[in-house]
Amino acid sequence: MFRNQYDNDASTWSPQGCIFQVDYASEAVKQGTAVVGLKSKTHVVLVAVKRSPSELASYQKKIIRIDDHMGIAVAGLTSDARVLSNYLRTEAMRSKMVYGRALPVGRAVSAIGDKAQTNTQEYGRRPYGVGLLVIGHDDTGPHLYEFSPSGIVSEYYGYSIGARSQSARTNLERNFERFEELSLQELVVQGLRALRDTMPQGKQLDSMNTSIGFVGMDTKMTILDGDGTQPYLDQLDEAEAMDTE
């Protein structure tokens, strides 16, 4: 591996104005399997590939519910994600307790962004080694945000993070202008198409390794695993068959 003297901690700038520890933490995100998020005018969807450490083990959870109106998908160190999801849940509950309103999604991601920033500035800490896609629905409609270890949060129409996510992003970039008018079902299938592009050679999306999450105007945050994903996977196959014809 490459090595230099500026990459030991998060409190050192390199001569080029980079913080290597943050860059390295971003690499950890790429170690995780891919997740894809995308939104229409009414809904926002997450799809993810789950990994199982061995044939005898269950699959690692990728999508986590935060509140009725919000959920996240994880790529990278899952234990770091749990710290952040706990924090998000606390903040969401606080908003409900104090103001009786669902926490606006943008404020929620800013809160974890600010939390992550501290880890990039102080000696003896490490940046979070996890990337999140945060989806939610609030007064201003559906939202999709990316959270990265640098503490930067950005809002997207569609995005993907994790292993080989570039292929999914290319797919999304080609199609995102059509997303706005799609139904929830179409949106999920569109997401699965992008997600499929991240699969390594010889691996397929199936009901065991696929996870789907969505939320919308009149739809509470829902997570589908196992058999629940089958109808969507069937539709994905149908759509593909149509393409090849």
Binding site: G106, V153, S154, E155, Y156, G158, Y159, R169, E173, F176
Partner: peptide, 10 residues
């Protein structure tokens, strides 16, 4: 860095 970013957000 991407066309996928929502304008007038961020």
């Amino acid at each position: 860095h991407s066309r996928l970013l929502v304008p007038q957000s961020n």
